[in-house]
Amino acid sequence: MTELILILLILLGILALQFKDLLNAVICLAVFSLLSSLLFYYLHAPDVAIAEAAVGAGVATVLFVVIIGKTRRREE
């Protein structure tokens, strides 16, 4: 279980770097945060899991999407 989540995390990180459309990269980062929060919960750290889910998947994603809306969406 832990190895599966870790491999998925690495894949999502590489995907977030490779996407030219920044909105896709932000969604990849949100799924990354969600999966790492699942990993923290699985490793018996529910405190860190709640913080990661709230900050990483909630607030940071909203801020990134708003910033993309105020700047360019595509990366050259």
Partner: peptide, 10 residues
């Protein structure tokens, strides 16, 4: 589980 920081962020 929870606390000041997590509850504040929620």
């Amino acid at each position: 589980p929870g606390g000041g920081f997590q509850g504040g962020v929620v």
